[in-house]
Measured scan of single mutants.
Amino acid sequence: HNLTITQGKLFFHYNPKLCLSEIHKMEEVSGTKGRQERNDIALKTNGDQASCENELLKFSYIRTSFDKILLRWEPYWPPDFRDLLGFMLFYKEAPYQNVTEFDGQDACGSNSWTVVDIDPPLRSNDPKSQNHPGWLMRGLKPWTQYAIFVKTLVTFSDERRTYGAKSDIIYVQTDATNPSVPLDPISVSNSSSQIILKWKPPSDPNGNITHYLVFWERQAEDSELFELDYCLKGLKLPSRTWSPPFESEDSQKHNQSEYEDSAGECCSCPKTDSQILKELEESSFRKTFEDYLHNVVFVPRKTSSGTGAEDPRPSRKRRSLGDVGNVTVAVPTVAAFPNTSSTSVPTSPEEHRPFEKVVNKESLVISGLRHFTGYRIELQACNQDTPEERCSVAAYVSARTMPEAKADDIVGPVTHEIFENNVVHLMWQEPKEPNGLIVLYEVSYRRYGDEELHLCVSRKHFALERGCRLRGLSPGNYSVRIRATSLAGNGSWTEPTYFYVTDYLDVPSNIA
């Protein structure tokens, strides 16, 4: 807008934040220059609390790290170098490059900038070799853009010569660093050979998330399962459950009422301010606690030095998902009996873990797994792929695949051998790939016309006998059925096997 004052003059007093240069501009645009008398524009009460600059400061050096910015700028000295009290560095987070010096300023003089007072450097006698002032900004957020400017702080001049310097606002972004852990990993099994893994992005990506790394490792069953005799009275049979499938998407929606109208769909109840505040506090606490764990609990591995020492970490090797089922080394339970199943799973520490690289999504279907087997899954978020990966501390989750139908069934015939004193040795093959492992066998036998009897055969007993022995049988026709019990439950009964026990007292003698 054009402003013209045809008559009258300007009068400025007691404006401590208004620089004289701005008042002189007002004289020019209003056409009143030359009308004012000496005392109409006070030299001592206008701009006496402001830094009124008329020179431009330029930054000469900028260096960044993930949490620091090192700045240096060209030296500046007023005509009387004693008038320079120091520099004021202003900075704040700036997602967009549209910041002005006066953003967030209120009537009390406060604003949204963080201000650092910096002492002037030592003055050199040689004007050509003056030290460049600077400042190291610490405690910054990774991968965050900051708006920065600097200006001088000078003393009051009796001659009211307006001098000083100020830089333009520059924008500097800190470097990326390792992201925080992925949030809320959930693993479920939808079949006997697959596990579905879902997660949420890290709360602090500290860069642009480029991919996720998912490692999985087959877990050995508890050692007590191999040692305890679950045929003993009072000892509860062990059981394991597989990871249940995901709930429906509708039930997972946030901010939804727990109660549904019987007449149909209901609208979600909005969260109160107290609920939102509580969630923010919980989120802040979780982030602080995660940072504490990362800094205190997890110790970084030592990389190899120039002395030739090897990095103890196993090298990563990509495998196809079809090879995942046989990740671990199978060892027989008892070496003397080769027909026992290889369900003991000690994992070799030198073995390469299978892994998958996930790009542009937060889910993965891990296939080719062994049925009813526990897996430990390790999830890392990465925001750099080359020249070397920059990934987060791992988040861990466990899951067990679903049982395989008929995996616990005894394959092959049940054979028998009759000894003296009416002892019958029953023999059968253990299931080759049971659900988890076989903890015991149930032997059901009966003599024709009598009630059915049951015998429990422990895992250890089966390994020693290759089956079991029935003792003290009365003469007669017998039928026997056997079924295995694994961590997933009972298998199917075998087809009945028949044998006849004679009275050993009636056996004919070869003595003449």
Rank of each mutant, 00 (worst) to 15 (best):
Leu470Asp: 00
Asn477Ser: 05
Ser320Lys: 15
Tyr396Ile: 02
His294Leu: 07
Lys357Met: 11
His425Ala: 14
Glu290Asp: 10
Leu464Thr: 10
Thr502Ser: 08
Tyr292Glu: 05
Glu351Leu: 15
Ser492Cys: 05
Leu321Val: 11
Ala309Leu: 13
Ala395Phe: 08
Arg286Asp: 14
Glu452Asn: 04
Phe372Ile: 02
Trp216Ala: 05
Asp503Asn: 06
Arg353Tyr: 12
Ala484Gln: 02
Ser398Glu: 04
Glu290Gly: 14
Pro431Ala: 05
Glu442Met: 04
Cys269Asn: 06
Met402Arg: 02
Leu426Asp: 00
Tyr478Pro: 00
Glu389Thr: 09
Thr494Glu: 00
Val327Asp: 11
Gln384Ser: 12
Glu356Ala: 13
Cys266Gly: 14
Cys269Thr: 13
Ser223Cys: 13
Val457Tyr: 07
Arg376Phe: 14
Asn208Phe: 06
Thr272Asp: 11
Thr415Asn: 03
Asp503Ile: 00
Lys460Thr: 10
Val345Leu: 13
Ser474Val: 10
Trp216Asp: 00
Gln219Cys: 05
Glu465His: 11
Lys460Trp: 14
Ser341Leu: 11
Asn383Ser: 04
Ile209Ser: 07
Ser367Met: 03
Ala395Arg: 04
Phe246Ile: 11
Tyr448Pro: 13
Ile366Tyr: 02
Glu221Met: 15
Ser283Met: 15
Ser284Asn: 10
Lys236Ser: 12
Cys266Ser: 10
Gly489Ala: 08
Arg469Glu: 11
Pro238Ile: 04
Ala330Met: 08
Trp242Gly: 13
Ala399Trp: 02
Pro244Cys: 08
Pro354Cys: 14
Ala463Leu: 12
Ala395Tyr: 06
Lys287Ile: 07
Glu389Gly: 04
Val423Pro: 03
Val365Ile: 15
Lys287Gln: 10
Arg376His: 14
Ser363Gly: 13
Pro387Lys: 11
Glu221Pro: 07
Phe298Ile: 11
Pro403Met: 06
Ala263Pro: 08
Phe298Leu: 03
His416Ala: 05
Tyr445Trp: 13
Glu224Met: 15
Glu362Ser: 08
Pro434Asp: 00
Thr307Ser: 08
Ala309Pro: 07
Val365Glu: 11
Asn421Tyr: 03
Arg319Phe: 06
Ser492Lys: 01
Asn490Cys: 10
Val296Asn: 11
Ile366Ser: 01
Thr343Ala: 15
Val365Ser: 08
Glu221Ala: 01
Glu260Thr: 12
Ile482Lys: 01
Val334His: 13
Phe355Lys: 14
Arg240Ser: 14
Lys302Met: 09
Tyr498Val: 09
Pro349Glu: 00
Glu442Asn: 05
Pro387Ile: 15
Cys231Ala: 03
Arg319Asn: 10
Lys302Cys: 09
Lys406Tyr: 06
Gly264Trp: 07
Val443Arg: 01
Glu356Arg: 11
Gly412Leu: 10
Val501Ile: 09
Gln380Ala: 07
Pro245Ser: 12
Arg301Cys: 10
Gln275Asn: 06
Pro387Asn: 11
Leu225Tyr: 03
Gly308Glu: 08
